[in-house]
Simulated assay, not measured.
Amino acid sequence: MAEQNSYENIIPGAIYQHYKGKPYRVIGVGKHSESLEDVVLYEALYENPLGRLWCRPASMWSEIVQVDGQKMPRFKFLFK
């Protein structure tokens, strides 16, 4: 049986909304240079004084979080 990648449904170029409401564009999916963990490189589509480009483990990107008792995706696909 083939191993399922945690980034299988992450679409480069697509716009996603973080559960806190801000929009992001996925640049691509890659590998951490030391651990070889799958990571997502993404761009903030709003003015962020901390930086424009961000990286997060693909497993975190794709996870379901609980907010105020409701389960929702950490990043929700909006459009491509």
Results as ranks from 00 to 15, higher is better:
M1Y: 07
A2C: 12
A2D: 14
E3M: 15
E3Q: 14
N5L: 14
N5H: 10
N5K: 09
S6G: 13
S6V: 06
S6K: 04
N9I: 02
I10V: 01
P12R: 00
A14R: 04
Y16E: 08
Y16C: 00
Y16I: 03
Q17T: 03
Q17S: 12
Q17G: 07
H18W: 01
Y19T: 01
K20V: 10
G21L: 11
K22I: 10
K22Y: 11
K22P: 10
K22A: 14
Y24D: 07
Y24W: 05
Y24F: 06
R25H: 05
R25I: 02
V26Y: 06
V26S: 05
I27Y: 10
I27G: 06
I27D: 07
V29L: 04
V29E: 01
G30C: 03
K31Q: 14
S33A: 10
S33Q: 12
E34A: 15
L36W: 14
L36T: 08
E37T: 10
V39D: 14
V39M: 07
L41D: 14
E43M: 08
A44Y: 02
A44D: 10
L45G: 03
L45Q: 00
E47Y: 05
E47C: 14
N48I: 09
N48L: 05
P49I: 02
L50W: 12
G51M: 04
R52Q: 09
L53F: 07
W54K: 04
C55D: 15
R56P: 09
R56G: 15
P57L: 05
P57W: 00
A58F: 00
A58C: 07
A58T: 06
A58Q: 05
M60I: 05
M60Y: 13
W61T: 01
W61N: 02
S62N: 07
E63V: 00
E63A: 06
I64Q: 09
I64M: 08
Q66Y: 13
V67L: 08
V67P: 13
D68W: 07
D68Q: 14
G69S: 02
M72G: 07
P73H: 00
P73M: 02
P73T: 04
R74M: 11
R74W: 05
R74S: 11
R74E: 11
F75H: 02
L78C: 04
L78R: 04
F79M: 15
K80P: 08
K80A: 14
